[in-house]
């Protein structure tokens, strides 16, 4: 059942893999922050991605500029995520099972509401006018839009790295995670910070949804297809590690595209293999710290 691929195909697949990896990073960076730093099992992350993508579909339909759409969709999801965190999740701090049920409940509601509003048909918005087509280099054509997605993801990765590792806000977030009680004593408003992190994660997921819509298309069930991918990325890279999320995303991007081309029947299952390996060999993840 294995399909042969030529080297020219392999190059295109590699480009697609990098683009998908970038998209997965946008999705899972927020998930990694929420799951790794705040210890919240946010099972609506896939739903944020899908709802963001649907917002994008509607906004683009009304003729809004693509980049404005992506930002607006992220902003809307930040507000929705912020409200859920501030008024419902906050009260369940430290209780895993209720948090799971609440986020799962919202994921189901969002999925059903999306089905009601945007129907069961898939939507595939087109990328911005000037990014369609392909660039030619070394006698080969590269799809321009996917390269742009990759560039955006790398830019976001650098921005997040600077935010978490080099700014005062990042230092406060890390302090709030390591020892919330002492951080509070030092005058850091930990719960406020956590709301900010949650909003950021939700916004990134929705942003990723809009960026991914032109090549993944948006359809019912996308949410629970993306959620496990974010999960694998985080298990692969190590919880709370942005570098881990970046590396994990690219590993997954390559596995998905090459798996799809070579073993079409098993492509989805192949995605989980590195996760199983990591769990057995290095449960803390590639770049994870061992929590005492």
């Amino acid at each position: 059942m294995m399909q042969q691929i030529t080297s020219a195909q392999a190059v295109i697949l590699a480009i697609n893999s990098f683009a998908l990896g970038g998209l997965l990073f946008l999705l899972s960076a927020g998930f990694s922050l929420i799951f790794g730093l705040m210890r919240i099992p946010n099972l609506m992350h896939g739903a944020f991605f899908m709802l963001g993508a649907y917002f994008g579909v509607s906004l683009l339909d009304w003729g809004v500029n693509f980049w404005v759409t992506a930002l607006l969709s992220g902003l809307a999801m930040a507000v929705i995520g912020g409200i859920i965190e501030r008024f419902l999740l906050r009260r369940l701090e430290g209780q895993v099972l209720p948090q799971v049920l609440l986020t799962l409940g919202f994921a189901f509601i969002i999925a059903d509401v999306c089905l009601m509003i945007w129907t069961g048909d898939p939507w595939q918005p087109s990328p911005p006018q000037n990014l369609r087509g392909a660039v030619q280099a070394m006698g080969m054509f590269f799809p321009l839009y996917r390269l742009v997605v990759l560039a955006v993801a790398v830019a976001v990765a650098i921005a997040l790295w600077i935010l978490v590792d080099w700014t005062r806000l990042g230092a406060m977030i890390r302090a709030g995670v390591d020892d919330p009680a002492i951080a509070r004593v030092c005058g850091i408003k930990v719960s406020q910070l956590f709301t900010i992190v949650f909003c950021l994660g939700a916004a990134l997921a929705a942003f990723a949804g809009v960026m991914g819509a032109p090549f993944l298309s948006v359809y019912p069930g996308l949410d629970f297809e993306m959620l496990p991918l974010a999960l694998i990325v985080v298990i692969l890279g190590g919880t709370g590690s942005l570098l881990g999320a970046l590396v994990g995303s690219f590993i997954l991007g390559f596995l998905y595209n090459f798996g799809q081309a070579m073993f079409p029947d098993l492509a989805y299952v192949i995605l989980f293999l590195p996760m199983l390996l990591i769990l057995v060999l290095r449960p803390q993840g590639l770049f994870g710290r061992v929590v005492p």
Partner: peptide, 11 residues
């Protein structure tokens, strides 16, 4: 939708 609402109401 009903399942989701029940979850949230219970919690």
């Amino acid at each position: 939708l009903v399942l989701g609402v029940i979850f949230i109401v219970i919690i």
